[in-house]
Design a protein around this nucleic acid. Structure first.
Lengths: 336, 336
DNA sequence: GCTCGTAGTCGAACCGGTTCGATCCCTGCC
DNA sequence: GGCAGGGATCGAACCGGTTCGACTACGAGC
């Protein structure tokens, strides 16, 4: 059931069938009808590999994800699902590739084997070897997150520095003087993970500006770490009255730690940060926080990539999202 | 940089290069060395589309996921990551396809367009049109979860009925007489979602057998629903002293509801069920529960599929996992 | 009535691999 | 010394599409 068979049954040449399908050259109405009948009858679909070979494009995007061993967070997985959905609206398929660890074979296969027309890279570091690898290849790509000096590259990101600054100002306005930033894990910071570093920078700048006493702690991406981390902060800096966090995975632990310490939010302690809406609303009480708009970022990334595919000469573009902070009920005036 | 270029530079024919790469026919040591030098120098990788066309296989698996709009749960997303990892160990790539909703184009494209060698289907229903569709096509596939009458098909699943039965027996042994099953959402039950239905069956059988008074409630897959659901159960059946649940997403809400009601677990109320280890351990106190071994299931599914690809005549196989219940500290004797 | 343009179609080349059959040469054996 | 057998290599066909150039037929324009 290939194009030759369709052509034979419709009594035309293969090229005519091809043109009837693509519309790239006119075909008489009668011929087109006959061809379509045969196609419908046999349930024919062009072979994707053959078409990719001939056209020089695969109609497929690559999505490079962190390895599952480094457990994916909710938000990261949200990206995956949203990228797939966004790609589907352009009739593009998505090929997944874990990278890092010992999965570089998969990454290489996708990049060098011309299996995809373009790549979306998530969870990138300030200096990322995969970005350099992609730049050397001719493959168009868009990153979710941006490298340190993203001159002439395509990316979308959330402005973590600005959002954390804003959280600090919010706390300062409420009278808090001793605040803590509960960051992502120390390994991520050491590896040069952008959001972690930029959050720190934004936090330090804002606390300095407002004359606050700010303290930064790293916290592994899991509830137990959140609990331990908070307890340590309380023990060593009992004067702290508010926390800013970008560590979603640690939230359940923070919740428990607050409860164990007998602290009522926001009466005794305020908490805010950059947290996906769903999680912020699940907190008790709901968190005043800036959303991580994973769905929008994924859609934007796909749109940028498609634009780059359609027009290879387009000048690099990017989007730095700065979602608003939703005022819920986890922040209040400094307790006295 | 195609095989012709490699052949030219190495001074041999294209077929010789191909044989040197695949090893399907002997090549002299000297020739092989020359070819490998050229390949290394140019960083050549065979074009995946061309190879797929010639070989008649794509070295790619399709993974059909539920649409993102129906928000993916933690466990589901764990499957995705684990399937990708397992496939990578076989040097296979994974093509993602959302299905259901208006994404059937993507599903069709993958099935009919010969884009993949085999398919893994997750979140299947007792009667699933996608299973029938795949059976009509010649494409090998394995399902995670099984249909009502899986005669001669390939699948892996967790034996929800047996696990829920075991949970009920455990509670009965502890003296509980009024227990409730907190199931997945009513829509899933209505759609014929296997785990939800089989859990109900197992629950009813075990409660009858042990002479318990059992009650089943549906609960949407989100924390807020868990809270509301528990409060309703307490209001209408205050005699209930223990719950079995397979609804992971509702757990945070259950936790809050227990807290609000002033109930201490397990002194005042026992809770158990089928819950991924990570979530069970995050609960307070840690849940006595059976794990959903997503990673193992994903690996098994990929292994089965690979076996089916290698040997198309193999007789259908399946795996019904029955993980042990880990005794943690959320169940205790019936309060008096 | 002749030329020109264009709609409609076809055949052939091409994309970049794999694989089959044939050829050539060398070695070993009777 | 002749022949069988096998290692090494090559050319050609093939996988299933797309696309280019050319050809035909027909209608419009002068």
């Amino acid at each position: 059931m290939n194009i030759r068979e369709i052509a034979r049954r419709a009594g035309v040449s293969r090229s005519t069938v091809s043109y009837a399908l693509s519309g790239k050259r006119p075909v008489s109405a009668a011929t087109a009808r006959r061809i379509n009948e045969v196609i419908a009858e046999l349930g024919y679909k062009p072979n994707a590999s053959a078409r990719a070979l001939a056209e020089g494009r695969t109609r497929t995007l690559g999505l490079v994800i962190p390895p599952a061993s480094r457990r994916l967070t909710d938000v990261q997985l949200g990206f995956v699902a949203s990228v797939v959905e966004a790609a589907a609206t352009h009739d593009l398929d998505v090929l997944l590739s874990p990278s890092g660890g010992d999965h570089d074979r998969s990454f290489e296969r996708i990049v060098t084997g011309r299996r995809v027309d373009g790549v979306i890279l998530m969870e990138i570091l300030l200096e990322d070897p995969r970005v350099e690898r992609l730049e050397r290849s001719a493959l168009p790509f868009v990153t979710i997150g941006h490298i340190e000096h993203p001159g002439g590259s395509w990316w979308v990101d959330v402005d973590y520095a600005a959002l954390v600054r804003r959280c600090v100002h919010h706390l300062a306005d409420l009278g808090h003087q001793h605040v803590v930033l509960i960051n992502r894990s120390a390994e991520l910071v050491a590896a040069g993970y952008g959001p972690a570093l930029r959050s720190t920078a934004g936090f330090q700048e804002a606390t300095r500006r407002r004359g606050l006493c700010g303290h930064v702690v790293c916290c592994a991406d899991e509830p137990a770490a959140g609990l331990a981390c908070f307890e340590e902060v309380r023990a060593r800096r009992p004067e702290v009255t508010a926390a800013v966090t970008i560590n979603e995975a640690a939230l359940p632990g923070l919740q428990r730690a607050l409860h164990n310490a007998g602290l009522t939010v926001p009466r005794d302690f305020s908490i805010t940060g950059v947290i996906a809406n769903r999680l912020a609303e699940d907190f008790h009480p709901p968190l005043t926080a800036a959303d991580v708009p994973a769905e929008e970022m994924a859609r934007l990334a796909v749109d940028l990539l498609v634009e780059r595919l359609v027009n290879p000469e387009a000048t690099p573009r990017h989007a730095l999202l700065e979602p608003v902070i939703s005022l819920r009920s986890s922040t209040g005036a400094r307790p006295r």
